[in-house]
């Protein structure tokens, strides 16, 4: 192939690729480092010897983590909350989005405004907190599944999808055959809408899996902690080794250092365990996210 690029364009391309490689490395490296540090000797890591590949390979950290009940319970709880919220969200969002996609629905502009307004004006944290408390959801697992079940952004995406994927003629001919709206929804709209349902499911699962603030607000009972709140305790509030804080004076400096290093190792491993499920699924689901954003950006 003949290269038609001018000299300046060739330089441009080189600089561009170089910059993109820098971006690539800067994005990957922090996560890569945590992964290799989690399987290296903590002494070597803290001495700064580990930066490109694992050194002093060991999986001691993981054997601790996989035995840690808090992390496993957090995992289980987060899974339940994510699935629960997703089901509620689908039931609330998909039929509503379909109805609002129907051009023959009266007052639908008004109803859309009712939803979209909440994107731009909210009551804020405190009134929201008071409402959820007054609904009796304090310390209830429902406080992590109900309040965000209707996401207006998802509603808009699904509505746009139905608007452009279900032809009016299809509805008309079904109506001529005496098909009512509910039957049409169940036997035509849901099968056609599989793609958009998948997208709404993904958005919900990821958002719920990564959320921690509502749990911080509403959940006191540690047995109900979702994974992110467990992680906050373990990773940020520095409490990984139970009883690590008290009685430190009684220990020798070497013992303190040994514990410190073990704690580091456990934290690296905990991060890996926390991001593993999404990172494994990521290559398969990322296409759908892009698609979702595209559909949403057409009008929204």
């Amino acid at each position: 192939m003949v290269d038609f690029r001018s000299r300046s364009d060739r330089i441009f391309d080189r600089i561009n690729v170089a910059l993109l490689v820098v971006v690539l490395v800067a994005t990957l490296y922090p996560v890569y480092f945590v992964v290799i540090a989690s399987v290296s000797s903590p002494t070597l890591v803290s001495a700064g010897h580990v930066y490109l590949w694992p050194d002093g390979f060991n999986v001691e950290g993981y054997s601790y983590i996989l035995r840690d009940k808090r992390i496993m319970f957090g995992y289980r709880n987060s899974l339940i909350y994510a699935v629960g919220q997703t089901i509620i969200s689908l039931v609330l969002t998909i039929p509503a989005a379909y109805a609002l996609s129907r051009r023959d629905m009266r007052w639908r502009g008004l109803i859309m405004f009712y939803f979209v307004f909440t994107l731009y004006f909210t009551g804020g944290i405190i009134p929201f907190y008071v409402v959820v408390l007054k609904l009796g959801l304090k310390d209830s697992v429902w406080s992590l599944m109900l309040p965000n079940a209707v996401n207006v952004f998802n509603l808009i995406i699904a509505r746009t999808f139905f608007q452009s994927n279900i032809p009016d003629e299809l509805l008309e001919s079904a109506q001529l055959d005496g098909c009512n709206n509910t039957r049409f929804f169940v036997s035509i709209v849901l099968p056609v809408g599989q793609a958009i349902i998948a997208i709404v499911v993904l958005f919900n699962v990821v958002q719920n899996w990564n959320a921690f603030f509502h749990a911080l607000l509403f959940i006191n009972d540690q047995a109900k902690y979702p994974l992110q709140l467990v992680l906050r305790r373990l990773l940020i509030l520095n409490q990984l080794l139970s009883g690590g804080g008290e009685g430190l004076e009684a220990l020798s400096p070497e013992e303190i250092q040994r514990r410190q290093l073990l704690a580091d190792l456990l934290r690296y491993g905990t991060i890996v365990v926390a991001i593993a499920p999404l990172m494994i699924l990521y290559p398969f689901i990322q296409r759908h996210f892009v698609k979702g954003i595209m559909v949403g950006s057409i009008k929204g």
């Binding site: 039931v91 609330l92 969002t93 039929p95 509503a96 379909y98 109805a99 609002l100 109803i111 009712y114 939803f115 909440t118 004006f121 909210t122 009551g123 804020g124 009134p127 929201f128 008071v130 409402v131 959820v132 609904l135 109900l146 309040p147 965000n148 079940a149 209707v150 207006v152 509603l155 709206n181 929804f185």
Partner: peptide, 18 residues
């Protein structure tokens, strides 16, 4: 079809505004 979502938004979005 829309009613459940309307009620949900009323509870969790408009009640806080009130």
């Amino acid at each position: 079809f829309v009613l459940p979502a309307i009620i949900h938004v009323l509870l969790f979005r408009y009640l806080p505004i009130y």
